[in-house]
Simulated scan of single mutants.
Amino acid sequence: MLAAVMDDFGTPLDVREVPDPGAHGGEVVVEVLATCVLPYASEVFGGARRYPLEPPVIPGLGGVGRVVTAGPDSTRLTPGELVWCDATVRSRDDATTPDITLQGWSSRGDGGLRLSRHFHDGSFAERMSVPTECVHRLSDVDTVDAARWAALGVYLVPYGGLLAAEFRAGESLLVSSATGNFGSAAVSVGLAMGARRVVAVGRNRHVLDDLRTRFGDRVRAVALTGDAEADRAAMLAAAGGPVDMVLDLLPPSVDASVVRAAAMTVREYGRVVLMGGVGMLGGDDLSLPYPWLMRNSVTVRGQWMYPRDANGRLIELARAGLLDLGQDSVHTFPLAHINEAIAHAAAHGGPFTRTVLTPGDR
């Protein structure tokens, strides 16, 4: 089969023939129909993100495909069936604190790195082998919509944060970094889950205006000025008072003071979920006042990715039309043009803009 291989950081991916994967116990071989190329993919492959990928590797973060072969312990998946393949792979020998790898992308700690050496290769290929528990049926989804459904991986990230804080219909949500790829998805998912109001915070006024136009009065936009106290006051005014939950998705380049300003808009018993990359590449750590946290019973938690059952739940939100995948602008590239796709994704990383690789197209 053909695959796009990263032989080393800082070099273009090479499309070439590689051996077909096999399906052993607990695994499924899938023909890859569509997989998202994330806007920061060039930073990963260039080494700027310092992800623990071990070249040579076929990168790629999940996607939509057809089942080719299922292992002997699979009883319901059938060849030809359309499925979503989740890239979040968990070790099977510790249900409480499993090691995690993002297949073909990243991993957490030494255990995650060991796991990645088995589930090493991702979706930038004509076929890939996936753990059975990471394969989710798409039921009546039409194959022609595979490229659009490949964006599930973007929406799943903020959905995981909302589930972690037990976000409920009728609550207010503040999204810090709402103008980015994941942040704008968080606005959409929050509304799909029944948010009473979403405060969208960011620096790009054009994108903030688009979010208001796209979603209506349930979205209130706040453009950051750089003055932390003024920004916090503007967030509270837009929300009509303290919010129920803050979801932070800020990238590594942002100062922690921006996180702090947003976090301190939550009400008593409010929740703050951190899912961004602030501090990963240096800079000051997040500082929150102990008395304020304690006396207001505020919950602050980190969340990496999402629970396994989030996949099926989000698929049903999309199938029901509550999460509208039709709003995405999708640009597809065949496997042979993978490096053009990576450059396109970097240049077009705005809200609801998806760069999708379609390995079956020649």
Rank of each mutant, 00 (worst) to 15 (best):
R76M: 13
P72W: 09
L138V: 10
F45I: 13
S257T: 11
D73Y: 09
V254K: 05
R214Y: 12
R203E: 13
R137H: 10
E27M: 13
E166G: 15
V246Y: 03
G283W: 10
A48M: 08
V198W: 03
T355M: 04
P351D: 04
G226S: 06
L274K: 11
G326Y: 01
V198D: 07
P359R: 01
F124D: 02
P251Q: 05
D210R: 14
R50I: 07
D324M: 04
Q303D: 00
V15T: 07
L322P: 00
V32T: 02
G65F: 03
G22E: 15
M280R: 08
T75Y: 12
A310G: 08
G190H: 03
H206P: 02
V278H: 07
V189T: 01
C85I: 05
A261M: 07
L288E: 04
W105T: 07
V356C: 01
P131N: 01
R319M: 09
E81G: 07
L82E: 05
L208N: 06
R50V: 11
A164W: 10
Y306D: 03
G360C: 11
A263R: 02
G112S: 02
A336I: 08
M305W: 09
R295K: 07
V189M: 04
F9R: 14
I342F: 01
A221E: 08
W292D: 11
R260L: 11
A169Q: 09
Y51A: 04
G226N: 08
L250W: 06
C85T: 09
R117E: 06
A48D: 11
A125K: 00
V300S: 13
H118D: 11
E81M: 14
A336H: 14
A221P: 08
F215M: 01
F333A: 03
D7F: 08
I342N: 02
T355D: 06
F352Y: 05
V330E: 09
G349Q: 10
L174V: 04
L247I: 05
N296K: 13
A345S: 13
N311M: 06
A237S: 07
G26I: 14
M294K: 09
E81A: 11
G279S: 09
P242I: 01
